[in-house]
Design a protein around this nucleic acid. Structure first.
Length: 502
RNA sequence: GCGCCCGUAGCUCAGGGGACAGAGCGGCGGACUUCUAAUCCGCGGGUCGCAGGUUCGAAUCCUGCCGGGCGCACCA
């Protein structure tokens, strides 16, 4: 896939003889684009950077790639593109439509993203919501980049936690107090109204919440189904017996220590289920497995990678994406959330309060390596200040213009492009690189960040220039259409609506 | 003790080798006969935790230290 900027970079690469990356200088004096290729090349070419820069600049202008190019600073090449180049770029964005910036990968893979996977012992909390918002945004980015992505939810349908949960519901049904270490909360009482196993009902509720959060899971995997295949998995592993237990020699594959597969009491350990589950995933034909886990699970990375290797798969075909936790702030103090204690914020409550758009934006807009302090009381206020509305507003404004337009986008412009027009076009042209890097780094927060910049440039353009009824109407309509496409794509990549009206 | 993450403006955070470090919020002051003022414009605000190192160049990479968060089960 190509776009105007990467084609320019490729052409310059041909001139320089080394990969050229174009950046947008912070200072307008430095032109539209700049490259540091001369600085990088200087040591190996044994020439002063500025000489090289001058040479590259000269060639670039001579070959008509840019209208101006000059060496600058310690050895940058500053480039200026023509209005015509930018206008052509706008048409290209418009005609590319929804595929602008898409399919950036050169090697499409079949990828499974396993995320959320919260035990069905209660409604989803804001902690799981971050997992969901982050994991789904990564999944969307990967799909946009050209991969085949499936989302999976894994849950325990047996085990101590589940028994406690079921016993808690049973207790309420018998009008008794919940067991010690049991679960409390209104939802337990609600489940007690129904008959039978509360687990399927809880799962239905979780799925409904996730769908409301605009996340659709392709598959749901149960622990019992996975556990049935433990023997097949163990057969593939390097194991040894010690003190009556069966161990996997994960330490030979980079893990800190070996892991128990079968306990001395004969019961299968959790790691055995991990192994069986992973074997099953690979057997289903995925090229890449992505696990989305909270920071409290970062200790799993080593053992999961070891497992992948022991099962005969490349270590890097398995990725564990770790995001930092969401802290609840109450009266200025961080509290660890506990579902059993009941001091949690449920995702549904958050959505009732601030809505899906603000919630998804809020949870994905900061880096996943950054801990989020979630202040319940501030959530509602914060929503009014949420930049998501700033971005959505840009989209709605454009929709309004296009609604009122009688002419079709495209066509000529009158006179030279205004500074606001040039800035907006260049901003839109950044999108393919932003989307690609965001996908490759599994860093979806770059998208909302970029979307703010686009909205910024659009609002500025809007304020300074009228679209309809001007001599440049055709071009400006195309520019609006291009901006609308990029904004709506950005919002879609993080699961936020792009409203036609606000 | 060991491992992972974080420390950038009053607050919340971007920036992950390049040219004077950015945004939002908050503060102050301006702009609506207009395609949506949920907008725009201006002002103020920073020893990029500390100390070394690598480099032509470090907020960015390396080492150590300080501070904060999260983990280190034959639990699930």
């Amino acid at each position: 896939m190509s776009d105007p900027v990467s084609r320019l970079a490729e052409a310059l690469t041909g001139i320089a003889g080394a990969p050229v990356e174009l950046e947008r200088p912070g200072d307008a004096e430095h032109g539209d684009y700049a490259t540091n290729v001369a600085l990088r090349l200087a040591p190996t070419r044994r020439r002063p950077p500025l000489d090289l820069a001058a040479e590259i600049a000269g060639d670039a202008v001579q070959r008509g790639l840019v209208t101006a190019a000059e060496p600058a600073g310690p050895g940058f090449v500053n480039l200026r593109v023509s209005d015509a180049w930018l206008a052509d770029a706008v048409s290209e964005i418009v005609s590319a439509g929804t595929s602008f910036g898409a399919r950036s990968t050169t090697s499409p893979e079949r990828i499974q993203v396993e995320m959320v996977s919260a035990n069905p012992t209660g409604p989803l909390t804001v902690a799981s919501a971050r997992n969901a918002a982050y994991g789904d945004a990564v999944a969307r980015l990967l799909a946009f980049a050209g991969h085949l992505v499936e989302r999976e939810y894994y849950y325990n349908d047996v085990g101590a936690q589940m028994e406690r949960f079921q016993a808690s519901v049973e207790a309420v049904r018998r009008s008794e107090a919940p067991p010690e270490d049991g679960y409390q909360g209104e939802y337990i009482a609600e489940l007690a109204q129904l008959s039978g196993d509360p687990v399927p009902a809880m799962l239905e509720r979780i799925e409904a919440t996730l769908e409301r959060f605009r996340i659709h899971f392709d598959t749901w995997e149960r622990q019992t189904a996975v556990e049935a295949e433990i023997p097949e998995a163990i057969a593939l592993l390097d194991t040894f017996e010690e003190e009556g237990a069966l161990w996997a020699r994960t330490s030979a594959h980079g893990d800190d220590k070996d892991r128990v597969l079968v306990r001395s009491d004969g019961a299968a350990g959790y790691f055995a289920a991990d192994a069986a589950y992973m074997r099953r995933k690979y057997a289903r034909g995925f090229d890449r497995l992505i696990y989305v886990l909270g920071a409290d699970h970062h200790g799993y990375v080593g053992r999961l990678q070891a497992l992948a290797e022991m099962l005969g798969h490349p270590r890097d075909s398995l990725e564990v994406l770790i995001y930092q936790l969401v802290n609840l702030i109450e009266e200025g103090e961080a509290k660890k959330m506990s579902k059993r204690r009941g001091d949690v914020v449920f995702l549904d409550d958050l959505l009732d309060t601030i809505g899906v758009d603000a919630a998804r934006w809020f949870l994905v807009a900061r880096g996943h390596d950054q801990t989020i302090d979630f202040d319940v009381d501030l959530a509602k206020q914060r929503t009014q200040k949420n930049p998501v509305y700033y971005v959505q507003y840009a989209h709605a404004r454009i929709a309004g213009i296009l609604r009122n337009a009688e002419a079709q986008p495209g066509g000529t412009r009158a006179g030279p492009l205004a500074i606001e027009e040039r800035e907006l076009v260049k901003r839109l042209l950044e999108f393919p690189a932003v989307a690609m890097e965001s996908a490759e780094r599994r860093a979806p927060h770059a998208i909302p960040n970029y979307a703010i910049r686009v909205a910024d440039d659009f609002h500025r353009f809007y304020h300074h220039h009228r679209v309809l009824g001007t001599d440049s109407e055709g071009f400006r309509l195309a520019l609006c259409a291009a901006a609308q496409g990029v904004v709506s794509r950005c919002l879609d990549l993080i699961g936020v609506d792009a409203p036609e009206r606000m």
